[in-house]
Amino acid sequence: MIDVLYFAWVRERIGLPRERLETSAPTVAALIEELRAREERYAVAFADLASLRVALDQELADFDAPLAGVREVAFFPPMTGG
């Protein structure tokens, strides 16, 4: 099981802040493919990967990063702090 978190407009498009998923996806990219295939709202949220960032266990990561041992995945737009 893996916790998947969504922030900002990703959260709004998917309609929930977090969910717990059973997945055997080996990488972030594979997880995104699974999510896209689930429902239209996921396909919309993950339509443009260039406008998305991902963090694995609260550290920024690449889309080809492996998910083995990861407990928490977060998807969000580029950050706008400061």
Binding site: F7, P77, P78, G81, G82
Partner: peptide
């Protein structure tokens, strides 16, 4: 400041009279 802008996980949303919009990086 430079790192807080784009490496700290905050997202700003502007609420205006004619709707709300996420601030783009």
């Amino acid at each position: 400041m430079d790192y807080l802008k784009s490496r700290a996980p905050f997202w700003k949303k502007e609420i205006g009279a004619d709707g709300a919009e996420w601030v783009a990086a």
